[in-house]
């Protein structure tokens, strides 16, 4: 039986994980779980630890592991620490990627992060009925700006997985690109996660806030973001979206403050890089014009 199915014992921890409620995942009492679920549980917990910024602990604790799942997690941790693990990942995927779901998923993540989208999709396509993999594929398609492929993927999953959380999430991600009524549907899904105790996290609250922002409901988005900040004021995504919100609200000073904060939290956040890049682009473009300020003598 699929341990992630509603009847399975992993359902709750899995939900919390995908809602980004990492601390809840770590605090989860898994002692009663059956032995077969021990490894998946461990993987979820380790990934949560990485997401919480404890990658170095994870990396060192797994240094000697040879179980392919855990090797994959170690690579993920090392990647988070800034190491180049691409070669190792490729090797691992080649060896274990046929069967091992964890390897597929983490391999997919790392390959995609390294820009090897094609190989990421290739390894992920080997999954057998894993919604995690489906969700990741959807996300990769969205990163490719292929909302059409993403929608197709989600639709296919909807047929066999019905109303599962991940299907709803994946659809919502796609919906955030499609817009219109889909914004509202996405909002429902995100809000549901964000307002349920087990799955409330800055992750889920930010998702809710983003959907509200797209719906043009700025005060609501602000409330959700503040809730997220109250939970964790050091989350880069929270800050990045707060910057967007405050910009829309016209609060310039707040934006400057948040930018400084974001730099403190995650110097390499792509937003900062992106903005820096744009700044340079602006200067380059502006230089093409030669304004004359005074009348020539």
């Amino acid at each position: 039986m699929d341990p992630y199915s509603p009847e399975g014992e992993l359902i709750n921890i899995h939900t919390a994980f995908h809602a980004g409620a990492y601390q809840q995942v770590l605090d989860f009492d898994t002692s009663s779980f059956s032995a077969t679920n021990a490894l998946p549980t461990q993987v979820l917990k380790l990934r949560s630890q990485i997401a919480l910024g404890q990658a170095s602990e994870v990396a060192s604790s797994l240094a000697k592991e040879s179980t392919p799942d855990l090797v994959a997690v170690r690579l993920l941790a090392e990647n988070a620490l800034g190491k180049d693990v691409l070669e190792e990942v490729k090797k691992l995927v080649e060896k274990e990627g046929q069967e091992n779901l964890t390897v597929q998923i983490i391999g997919g993540i790392l390959l995609e992060k390294a820009g090897e989208t094609e190989s990421a999709l290739a390894v992920l396509s080997k999954h057998e009925g894993s919604l995690d993999a489906v969700a990741l594929i959807v996300q990769i398609h969205l990163r490719q700006n292929r909302a059409d492929l993403a929608a197709k993927e989600a639709q296919r999953a909807r047929k066999w997985a019905q109303d599962s959380l991940l299907v709803n999430l994946a659809e919502s991600w796609v919906g955030m690109r499609e817009g219109g009524e889909k914004y509202q549907s996405a909002f429902y899904v995100f809000e549901e996660l964000a307002q349920t105790a087990q799955s409330q996290s800055s992750h889920s609250l930010v998702a809710q806030a983003v959907s509200e922002l797209h719906l043009g409901r700025l005060p609501e988005a602000e409330a959700a973001l503040q809730q997220a900040i109250a939970l964790n004021d050091n989350n880069a995504d929270t800050i990045a979206n707060s910057i967007v919100l405050n910009t829309l609200l016209g609060k310039k000073d707040e934006v400057q403050k948040l930018k400084a904060q974001l730099e403190g939290v995650d110097k390499e956040h792509r937003v900062l890089a992106d903005w820096q890049e744009k700044k340079e682009e602006f200067n380059k473009a502006a230089q093409k014009y030669t304004p004359k300020f005074e009348v020539a003598a």
């Binding site: 980004g20 983490i106 990163r143 967007v244």
Partner: peptide, 19 residues
């Protein structure tokens, strides 16, 4: 430019999706 891009956290361990 700033106001038009949001960052949606999606799959754990993956960077947020830009919307």
């Amino acid at each position: 430019y700033q106001a038009s891009r949001t960052f949606l956290p999606a799959t754990p361990n993956m960077p947020a999706l830009v919307n």
